[in-house]
Structure formats: C-alpha cells, structure tokens
Amino acid sequence: MDSVDQPLRAVDVRGPMPTERLRLRPFERDDLTDLRAFDTSPEVARSLLRAERSAAESAGELERRLNATRIEHAGDRLDLAIELPADGSEPARVIGEVSLTLASSRDRRAELGCALYPDFRRLGYGMEAATRVLEFAFDEVGVHRVTARFDLRNVAPARLATRLGMRNEAGLVHDLWFDGRWVDVAIYGILDVEWAARKSVDGL
C-alpha cells in the first residue's frame, strides 16, 4: 500500500452520523449542561487523566468543539457528541463524546478518543460509537492506522479497544505524572487492512 497513491481526504462533518441506536453529531451550544455534568465528575476526571473543569473551562472547551468538525491537516481534531435520540417523553441527550485526532498526515495516523457519561456505560454504546468513528477514519478520511491510549489500570477502555479489534501494542511505564502518582499508559493500534478484514468477517 502506497502513501502517495492513497492521499488523505479532507473531511468536514456537517450533519449527524447515525448508528443503530445513536447519533454522532457536531457539538451545539445547547450541549453545555450535559457537558458540565460530565466535566465536574471526579470519576470522569480520573479515568480521562485530566483535572475537573471549571465552568469557564467547560464553556471554552465547548467553544473549541463547535468548530472541531474538520479533519485535514496534522493536529486537526474532530469532536463529536454521542447523542441518544429522543424516545417517547425522554428528550434527546448527550451521553458521551468521541474524538479523532490526525496525528500525522504523512504517516496517515490518527488517534481515537471515546468517553461515555457514567450513567450510560455497559450498554454497548461505546462500542457502537467507536465503531462508527473507526469506519469514518478508515473509509472516509483514509487513514492507515488508528491508535488509542489510556491509563493502563483502566479496564473499560482496554476491553472496548480489544472488542474493536485493536492490538495491545505498548505499556509505557510511568509515562505521565497525574494527581500525585505516576501513570502507566497503554497504547492500542489497528491498521486499515485489519479493519477491512474484520469488517468482512463480521459482516459489519
């Protein structure tokens, strides 16, 4: 496979990307309330290895995400809300977030991020959303490789990455200093050919 024959495609996400039960869509100003609940959870901060966000930080982060809908150059980051559509009297709400960062255009390499709000875990939503983002990365953007990185002690993302067909490629000992301790970081990866083979087997 030749990098020159397979240039990356610049992709703008303008509308929602539906999955079986969810909609992945660009963030909107109205998402601030759902985002705040997420950003102020100590459990979330710990699992994502970041500090809890202040109100101003959440607003700033949302502002950035409103425009994070295009992947073209290295460093570009796509941020999408995972929305559970309205059901009867239950209004639609944001239950998580996914991201895809183009780490290198020459190497056609991207990084996947996926976080579900605590009340919506263990229902397969993460798998559903992340599958759609991988599909987007490989089929629409044309990346060669996607990686995911997380706290090595955190079993949920490891399980999700494994179910997605990603390979455990590295365990970086004491890669980060966070919240008064050294954190080991796991890196998982999957290649375009592997994703394609997996799709044909699963009939996805």
């Binding site: 496979m1 390499r109 060669h144 490789r145 490629e169 590295a170 365990g171 890196i187 990866g189």
Partner: peptide, 24 residues
C-alpha cells in the same frame, strides 16, 4: 522494551514498525 508499533511510520517508501524502549 515497552512497545512495538505496527506500521506507524511511512518511511523511505514503505511502512515501518517502530520499537519503544525506556528506563526509569
């Protein structure tokens, strides 16, 4: 040896794997 990254670099006309080593 902490990791082996498969085809993470487009390197002089081919995909290359890279190794990651570290010491504390």
């Amino acid at each position: 040896r902490e990791g082996l990254f498969r085809e993470d670099l487009w390197f002089k006309g081919a995909w290359g794997d890279s190794l990651y080593y570290a010491i504390l």
